[in-house]
């Protein structure tokens, strides 16, 4: 148990060190702008289809469930505001982050892991390129920028899904009522939370993926292990950080 704890603390220390270097490199030469753009394309645009699909159905499902529950209290007219609040504050950021974790934390870990076991990372260092600067920092920037954008997309399509359920399908409220209530429900605080979360999640996903990728050992099997660990660790961190942020914002 003690042994487990010391290894864990050791890893966490390494993780913090890697993060520190990755952030430090943002303001340090040389900058690999091309890599940032390539990663933005892979992480951002590559994730749009799945984010659209998931966002749409989450909105639709919340609306279905809420419509029934609200009806028992005679509060069907509130469906728009409930959906808006849940989506923007909680589900949009968390669901999108989990999707991107599945897609990109694993992708990053396996790509860097393969590079590690084929000694490409060592080759980079041997040939005068800092792997953190070249590989980690671009992924950090790209994910931190793209995840909030993807979350906004997920929120919007989710609201649209909920609209389709509440207005044309169940006909519980009118279109204008739906959009007005959902718009009015959101205050600055919710929007701030809804954007701060994906920004932090984005950093977690990129850094955890890179961390497990770069410490891969043990050939191709090791790459598989690194990928699994990255997804599990990033998911846990996302829930933990959600809890922390919610706690802070409730007190504000």
């Amino acid at each position: 148990m003690l042994r487990f704890l010391t290894t864990w603390i050791g890893s966490f220390q390494e993780y913090i060190l890697l993060s520190g270097r990755a952030f430090g490199n943002i303001v340090r030469e040389p900058h690999y702008y091309d890599d940032v753009l390539i990663q933005m394309d892979i992480i951002g645009f590559g994730s749009i289809p799945i984010v659209l699909l998931t966002g749409f159905f989450s909105g639709a499902i919340i609306a279905l469930q809420m419509a029934r529950a609200l009806n028992t209290y005679g509060a069907s007219s509130q469906v728009g505001s409930i959906v808006a609040l849940t989506l923007v504050r909680e589900l949009g950021p968390v669901l999108t982050a989990l999707l991107v974790t599945g897609r990109n934390a694993s992708g990053i870990a396996s790509e860097l892991g393969s590079m590690k076991v084929t000694e490409q990372i060592d080759a980079m260092r041997a040939l005068g390129t800092d792997p953190v600067q070249k590989l980690v920092t671009p992924r950090l920037i790209a994910t931190a920028v793209m995840l909030p954008a993807l979350t906004v997309v997920a929120d919007a399509i989710g609201l649209f899904g909920a609209y389709l359920v509440s207005v044309p399908l169940l006909k519980i409220i009118s279109a204008s009522q739906y959009w007005t209530t959902s718009y009015q429900a959101l205050v600055m605080n919710d929007l701030a939370q809804g954007l701060l979360k994906p920004l932090i999640f984005g950093m977690i996903i990129a850094l955890v993926g890179c961390f497990y990728g770069l410490r891969t050992t043990g050939g191709t099997q090791g790459v598989g292990r690194a990928t699994t660990h990255a997804v599990v660790a990033a998911s846990i961190w996302i829930f933990f950080v959600t809890f922390l942020i919610d706690k802070i914002f409730v007190n504000l």
């Binding site: 076991v117 084929t118 000694e119 490409q120 060592d122 080759a123 260092r125 041997a126 040939l127 005068g128």
Partner: peptide, 16 residues
């Protein structure tokens, strides 16, 4: 200093 030494890696280390 490293740029003055050549190295061939066991696993190749070629950038794929």
């Amino acid at each position: 200093l490293r740029s003055r030494v050549g190295i061939l890696f066991q696993e190749g280390g070629l950038f794929d």
